[in-house]
Amino acid sequence: MSAPAAPVRLLVVDDHPVVRDGIVGMVASDPGVEVVGEASDGAEAVRLARVLLPDVVLMDLRMRGMDGVAAIRELTRLGLPSRVVVLTTFDGDSDVLPAIEAGATGYLLKDAPREDLLRAIRAAAAGDAVLAPSVASRLVGRVRTPEANLLSPRELEILALVADGATNRAAGERLHLSEATVKTHLLSIYAKLGVGDRAAAVAEGFRRGLLDL
């Protein structure tokens, strides 16, 4: 009989103590999740993540001091193994895209049911990208405007590596990103190009002149 899987080690980051307590209360009762730390801003989150090495960081975006995007960018720069899932009340392009570009593995809204939150934490720990339905719809909706078809510099880098045959892991190692972050970028690329898989994305990239022959 195999031993039970170790619980997902979680760091909760939010600048409102009441909200933070609520999140901890929601997830701590699940035996599959262990809350190993709490932080009230991005700088504290980075300090704790370096010491605790959590599997997943549940990150608010708009905080006093260092905000969530800056913290995600710093965690990515440091090459920590922790995967970041944004948990916020904001789902506008100006919030979603910078967070994913900075290296977030997933993006959820604070009105998500408890089971969705726990499912997202487990998925992120396993290396899977997680997007709230409204966020995924927003990315797909960007395809409808001409400017949305232009990929970000990071997305172009990933698409070029995929076109060269790189796996998600290899692309992540090349760009110093986690495999899950590469998957999240690919979801955004698919949405912007209106395709459903890697091969179609590469073909569409060549067709649109985004990739060089």
Rank of each mutant, 00 (worst) to 15 (best):
L108N: 13
T105P: 07
A49Q: 02
V56I: 04
V85Y: 09
Y107K: 08
L151E: 10
R142P: 01
G103C: 01
L61R: 00
F90S: 08
A136T: 04
Y107T: 10
E44L: 04
E74R: 10
R138V: 03
A43V: 07
T88M: 11
R144Y: 11
V33I: 15
L151M: 10
P54V: 08
M59Q: 06
S134H: 05
G37P: 04
V96W: 04
L87Q: 08
E157I: 01
P113R: 10
E38R: 14
L156E: 14
P54A: 03
A166I: 06
A129Y: 12
V57K: 02
R50M: 13
A104G: 05
D111F: 14
S137E: 15
T105R: 04
R83W: 12
A129N: 04
D128N: 13
E155Q: 15
D55Q: 08
R73G: 12
A123N: 11
A132Q: 10
T167S: 15
G92I: 11
S40K: 11
A129S: 15
V135Q: 11
V56L: 03
R62Y: 06
R114G: 08
E38D: 01
I158W: 02
V69G: 00
L87Y: 15
D55C: 02
D67Y: 02
A126M: 07
A124G: 09
P54T: 07
L97P: 05
I121T: 07
